[in-house]
Amino acid sequence: MAESATGNDAGALVLFSGGQDSATCLAWALDRFPRVETLGFDYGQRHRVELDRRAALRRGMTALDRSWWRRLGRDHTLDLGALGEISDTALTRESEIALERDGLPNTFVPGRNIAFLTFAAALAYRRDLRHIVGGMCETDYSGYPDCRDDTIKALQVALNLGMERRFVLHTPLMWLDKAQTWSLAEELGGRALVDLIVEESHTCYRGERGERHAWGYGCATCPACDLRARGFTRYLAARAD
């Protein structure tokens, strides 16, 4: 268990989409901070079903650990529909997922994480929360530039200057692959947390929850499902060694 932060600035706000990564980040924050709130964004994403999974994940986590129940506070959802309206991507339109000529997948929503973290900081300012936790990752990812460590560090500087606060942006998954993310979930909450994430979280870009796989629900063919499935297979193999 991580050493708990203390003091008046010890509260944390977790960017909580309802997916595997954000669920793991929520467990990480609950293990570390005495007061934790969550924030989701509705931006017209085609996999909006992920937002519907958040309540079950929150309930499940508080049932796993009484200290987590005491620490988990309010949930917030912000409407960022304008982001979806100006984004012509496979996450905000019914179009096939493919690579663009610049090498980025057309699931990249320009400015999404920058907008998310900016609005999160504005909410954290009002809620008197110093720590902001996101599931950005530069290891197993699709090349999104707003997931890179340099982007997050630069944004932390900009937010602190622009809001005259000392926010700390945490990205506990930044240097982990998906197998290590599954392992981190087990380290934080045991196999019960892994099972909860498998059953209740949603990662599939197409928003499909019809078929249940060993790693959870999804189409099994989009990049998000592929990463999640391959990571789960490697996690199980490492666990068996």
Rank of each mutant, 00 (worst) to 15 (best):
D128Y: 01
D21P: 06
Q20V: 02
D88S: 03
V49N: 00
R166S: 14
A192D: 15
G216N: 07
V133E: 03
I152T: 10
A240R: 08
L91M: 15
R46N: 09
A122P: 08
G18E: 05
W175F: 11
L169H: 04
D31V: 05
D79L: 12
H47P: 01
G18S: 05
N8R: 04
A82R: 03
L188R: 00
R191F: 12
R93D: 09
R206T: 14
D150N: 10
Y205P: 00
F108H: 12
L83H: 03
S95T: 15
E94T: 13
T181C: 06
G216F: 03
L193P: 02
A224Q: 09
L80Y: 08
D65Q: 14
L15T: 06
L236Q: 15
W28V: 01
L159M: 07
E187C: 01
Y235G: 03
F116G: 06
A5C: 02
G190H: 02
L161R: 13
L72C: 05
A56N: 10
D226R: 05
T77M: 13
M61E: 13
C137N: 15
L184Y: 07
A120D: 05
R191Y: 11
L64E: 11
E199H: 07
I114N: 13
R239C: 03
L15A: 13
C222Q: 06
E164N: 14
R230Y: 06
R209K: 12
Q180F: 04
T151E: 14
V194N: 08
D88W: 05
T77P: 00
F41Q: 10
T171K: 01
V198S: 06
G135R: 01
G111T: 03
R212E: 12
A23R: 04
A214M: 08
T139V: 03
Q45V: 04
E50P: 00
V109G: 02
E208D: 15
G134A: 14
Q180T: 00
T62P: 01
M174F: 05
S95P: 00
A63S: 15
H131V: 06
N106P: 00
R58K: 08
I114W: 11
S17F: 04
D177L: 00
Y125H: 14
A2P: 10
E96F: 09
H76N: 13
L26K: 05
D140M: 02
R58L: 08
L78I: 10
S183R: 03
R127S: 13
F119Y: 15
D177Q: 02
G81P: 02
R148Y: 07
W182D: 03
A124C: 03
A220S: 15
A237N: 05
N160D: 10
M61G: 06
R48C: 08
D195W: 00
C225N: 08
I132E: 02
G19S: 10
L57D: 11
G216S: 07
W175T: 12
R228C: 02
R74Q: 15
A122T: 11
L117D: 09
A115R: 01
L236W: 12
T38A: 13
R46A: 09
A240W: 08
A158V: 14
A10F: 04
G11P: 01
I197Y: 04
D146N: 08
G7H: 09
K153D: 10
